Simulated assay, not measured.
Amino acid sequence: MPHARFLVVFDADSTLLRNEVIELIADEAGRGAEVAAATEAAMRGEVDFASSLRSRVAQLAGVPLTAFDRVRSRVEPTPGAAELIAAIHERGGAAAVVSGGFHEVLDHIAPGLAVDLWRANRLGTDGATLDGTVAGTIVDAEAKAASLREWADGHEVPLTRTIAIGDGANDLRMMAAAGLGVAFNAKPAVRRQADVVVGPVDLREVIPLLP
């Protein structure tokens, strides 16, 4: 990894992206409402994230992989995302995303936003459809914090020059590990614990916080 002046790590769903991608996939299975309610509880910190994710992903069993083209077409970057990432790069920083969502979508979205690094969960398949499992280790709160530390070390960035931006309880550990934790479009528990709270759903509001 190249040296960077600073590092900004984003959550994906409802932070860098306007959508909760798992809900878009659940729509393909006709289970959008149930999964949306479970996602909301997880983001408020009311249930264990990994357990919640497994139960929500189980609802996706049988969704054909061909449905991902429709899902990706519905994903919208949050207003100001491209401008903020451009500002990060102009100032010599690196932009990364660590997500409790899925590589199957992030791998298509992140390059178009000029994100430098990203990590997410992978969905299990039987070759043609989702099998209702998460493949590999789940990206949970501790994995998010570990990713921030790993990427900062790889870019020779001290943790004091890192910024973590998130909205849900799953983001609190990486926000605590970062030099600056920013609550964006966030749940009340996250706003209470963040260093900075950004109210408007426009990522350009973060630009003045960049070092």
Rank of each mutant, 00 (worst) to 15 (best):
A29S: 05
A29C: 02
A29E: 02
G30A: 03
E34A: 11
E40M: 10
A41H: 11
A41N: 10
M43K: 01
M43W: 05
R44C: 13
V47R: 12
A50M: 07
S51T: 14
R54V: 07
R56C: 00
V57M: 07
Q59Y: 11
V63P: 04
L65Y: 01
T66Y: 11
F68P: 07
F68R: 10
F68M: 10
F68Y: 13
R70E: 11
V71Q: 08
V75Y: 02
T78Y: 07
L84S: 08
I85F: 05
I85L: 08
G92C: 06
G93N: 09
A96H: 09
A96W: 06
A96E: 09
G100F: 00
G100E: 03
G101F: 11
G101V: 05
F102D: 06
H103T: 14
H103K: 11
E104C: 02
V105D: 07
L106G: 00
I109G: 01
A110T: 09
P111K: 12
P111Q: 09
G112Q: 12
L113R: 02
A114F: 10
V115L: 05
V115F: 06
L117P: 00
L117M: 12
L117C: 08
W118A: 04
W118N: 01
N121D: 00
R122P: 05
L123C: 04
A128G: 13
L130P: 04
L130G: 01
L130R: 05
G132W: 08
G132H: 03
T133C: 03
V134A: 03
G136D: 03
T137K: 14
A141S: 13
E142T: 14
A145Q: 07
S147A: 15
